[in-house]
Amino acid sequence: MKQVGLFFGTFNPIHIGHLVIANHMVEYSSLDEVWFVITPQSPFKVKQSLLDNHHRYQMVFEAVQEYPKLKASTIEFDLPQPNYTIHTLVHLKEKYGKDFSFSLLLGEDNLKSFHKWKNYQEILANHHLYVYPRISAGIIPEQFKEQPKVHKVDAPIMEISSTFIRKSHRAGKNVRPMLPEAVWKYMDEMNFYR
């Protein structure tokens, strides 16, 4: 059975921090692959700064080309809005059944609010959580500290954000070193985030 870690995000744009974390998870845990699950543009709150789904997918696709254990996933594009992780997990289980086991990749900051997620107990009952460190305030609730399905992975702390990249790019700063080369080329050619 293939062990797949799901890395959810808008990836607007995907950057080297995302790749470093995903690659670390697949190399230093029991995961066989990591899928970047691109969160679709919500029809309920259209944000000017969020690129169309297909452009963000294309950038993720370009970013993972040279990494056979990393994949781009559009699974949430066809699911009802708003997207809840539990619905995506149920859909994946129906679609891939017995061949795949799905886990979640979470930043430590997300673990602190995980108890507020829809059906979080059900997620935890059926899936493992691989948690990577973040510099963030707040404390991890006791219920997740000794939880056997919560695995803290000693991944590098990546404090690069897509928001910072967009703002810097708009201000005319050179953001190229923070992006996979293929993503930079696509972004530059398409004149995104100017």
Rank of each mutant, 00 (worst) to 15 (best):
S29K: 01
R176V: 06
E181P: 02
N110I: 05
S49E: 15
F164C: 11
L50E: 09
I160D: 11
K152Q: 13
N23T: 13
I75F: 15
L104Q: 05
H169W: 13
A63D: 07
F61N: 09
K152Y: 13
M59P: 10
R134M: 02
H55W: 08
D188W: 06
N126A: 12
I14G: 02
E159S: 15
I135Q: 12
S73L: 01
K2S: 07
M178Q: 06
Q65T: 11
P148N: 03
H127N: 15
N119T: 04
R166H: 02
I160S: 04
V20A: 15
G17A: 10
L50A: 12
M190T: 13
M187H: 01
S49G: 06
I75G: 01
K45H: 14
P40A: 12
M178H: 09
N126Q: 13
P40E: 13
D188N: 12
N119C: 11
P148S: 11
S162V: 04
A137L: 08
I86L: 13
F192R: 10
S113Y: 05
V46P: 10
I135L: 13
V20Y: 01
R170L: 14
K185Y: 02
H87C: 14
N110L: 12
L92A: 08
E108D: 14
E33L: 10
I21K: 00
V34K: 01
